[in-house]
Amino acid sequence: MTEPAPVLHAYVCTVCGSDHVTRDAWAAWDVAAQDWVLEAAFDYAHCHRCMGGARLERVVLTSPVTFALPEIAPSATALPETTTPLTRPPAPPGGGFP
């Protein structure tokens, strides 16, 4: 008897539906593996299509290249007028970020 295929997921932006999203995280160097290993993932998420902070929703992939979009109410597709853009803090004196 064959085992069912595993269910695959993607994370998408709840505003625009894009899967081009990232999260802040820490990576630690693993000497034995000679590679960076994810140590912690934080709550902040960024949508590279909206170009700002985002809420993510996990969706089931329906094929290798498509996914089932989350159900979004029509009123939820527009950002509220009270939304303020997120900005990066200024670089320290004498240089950029390491």
Rank of each mutant, 00 (worst) to 15 (best):
T2P: 14
T2V: 11
E3C: 08
E3I: 06
E3Y: 04
A5C: 07
P6C: 07
L8K: 03
L8W: 02
H9C: 05
A10K: 13
A10Y: 04
Y11F: 11
V12A: 10
C16N: 00
C16D: 01
G17F: 02
S18N: 00
D19M: 09
D19S: 13
D19A: 10
H20P: 00
V21S: 07
V21A: 03
T22K: 10
R23Q: 15
R23I: 06
A25T: 08
A25Y: 11
A25N: 09
W26Y: 14
A27K: 10
A27N: 11
A27C: 08
A28D: 10
A28Y: 08
A28W: 06
W29G: 06
D30R: 07
A33Y: 04
A33W: 00
Q34P: 01
Q34A: 12
D35A: 14
D35S: 13
W36K: 10
L38E: 14
L38I: 13
L38T: 12
E39C: 07
A40T: 13
A41K: 14
A41V: 15
F42D: 09
D43Y: 07
Y44E: 13
A45P: 09
H46C: 07
H46A: 05
H46W: 15
H48Q: 09
H48V: 01
H48D: 14
C50G: 03
M51K: 14
M51R: 15
G52I: 04
A54D: 05
R55T: 15
L56H: 01
R58E: 15
V59L: 00
V60Q: 13
V60F: 01
L61P: 02
T62D: 13
T62R: 03
S63R: 00
P64F: 03
P64V: 03
V65T: 15
V65D: 15
V65N: 12
T66F: 02
T66M: 03
T66C: 05
F67Q: 06
F67D: 08
F67N: 05
A68S: 14
L69A: 15
P70F: 02
P70I: 05
P70R: 04
I72V: 15
I72K: 10
A73S: 13
S75M: 10
A76K: 06
A76C: 13
T77W: 00
A78W: 05
P80Q: 07
P80K: 06
P80H: 05
E81Y: 06
T82S: 15
T82I: 08
T82A: 13
T84F: 06
P85L: 11
T87Y: 07
T87I: 11
T87Q: 08
T87N: 04
R88C: 08
P89E: 07
P90L: 05
P90F: 00
P90M: 06
A91F: 04
P92I: 00
G94M: 05
G94H: 01
G95Y: 04
G95I: 04
G96M: 03
F97P: 12
F97L: 02
F97Q: 12
P98W: 02
